[in-house]
Amino acid sequence: MVAALEISGLKVLYGQAIEALDGVSITVPDGGFVALLGANGAGKSTTLKAISGLLRFENGRIAEGTIKYRGEDIAAIPSYQLARRGILHVREGRFVFPTMTVEENLEASLFARGKRGPALARRVYEEVFHYFPALKERAKSQAGYLSGGEQQMLAIGRALFAQPELLMVDEASLGLAPKIAADIFTILDKISNDRKLSILVVEQNVTLALRHAAYGYVLENGRIVSEGESQKLLDRDSLSRRYLGGGANAH
């Protein structure tokens, strides 16, 4: 079976010489839920930007390696075309449109896929509100007045509204209370299982991510230093000490 996403030997440079990634290789199975873990500055966000075509907006470039989506090399394809193919990137910081309502934010994502129409909108509204009932309650509210957790739900819901085939979420729990962060990951897990959706999530909270993802990769200084099935990664004492500051059950 062809993997949904296969990255091999990826090297990324910023400017002329700043190396952000050095030989990164990652696979996301079709319908799989994979976590990319590591501390700030490890290269996690750069990896997502390389996949989604956003590097060029930050003076970054792929120096070596391949990025294949369902067997096709997509490294040179513009970001808007990747979105139309169903590769959706929820960026760190949420990036909701603050003066637009929740409904308007959701509908804006249909343009990313080049799809429109009231029948489609009704169907995907139902799906998004099923996973995020809090958004239904705030449907007519301006996004700028939502809580941080609600804005993260909206950012993910907006990507879901565009009917993704590969969903990438950067720092899903950043700045959120522990319960809200746990709820976000529970919903992502459910979406992956229900829709057989391929998900790649970038996260610093190792324990939380590995409780839900099936497989994990650990980045350090632009290189993969560990990978494996989630429970096996959690059971490794060295990984726990480095990224959790204690045992595998640390919070």
Rank of each mutant, 00 (worst) to 15 (best):
A213H: 06
S25E: 11
R85T: 09
Q152I: 07
A181W: 02
A39S: 13
R91L: 13
P98V: 11
M1V: 08
G60L: 03
K196I: 07
M100T: 05
E126A: 14
G93Y: 10
D235A: 13
T47Y: 11
T27I: 11
P118Y: 03
G117F: 04
G148M: 09
R122H: 09
A250F: 09
A50F: 01
L174Y: 09
P78R: 01
A3T: 04
R84Q: 06
A83G: 03
K179E: 14
K68Y: 04
L188N: 03
P178R: 00
G228W: 00
L167Q: 04
P29W: 03
L120Q: 07
A139E: 12
V201R: 01
E229G: 12
I199W: 02
K44Y: 01
R138F: 07
L106Y: 04
P118H: 04
V124S: 10
V28S: 03
R138W: 02
E103G: 07
E107K: 13
K136C: 06
S173G: 08
I77P: 05
V2S: 13
L110E: 01
L120H: 11
K196G: 09
K232W: 05
I191E: 00
Y243N: 13
F33Y: 10
I187R: 12
G65V: 07
L106K: 09
A112Y: 06
S147L: 08
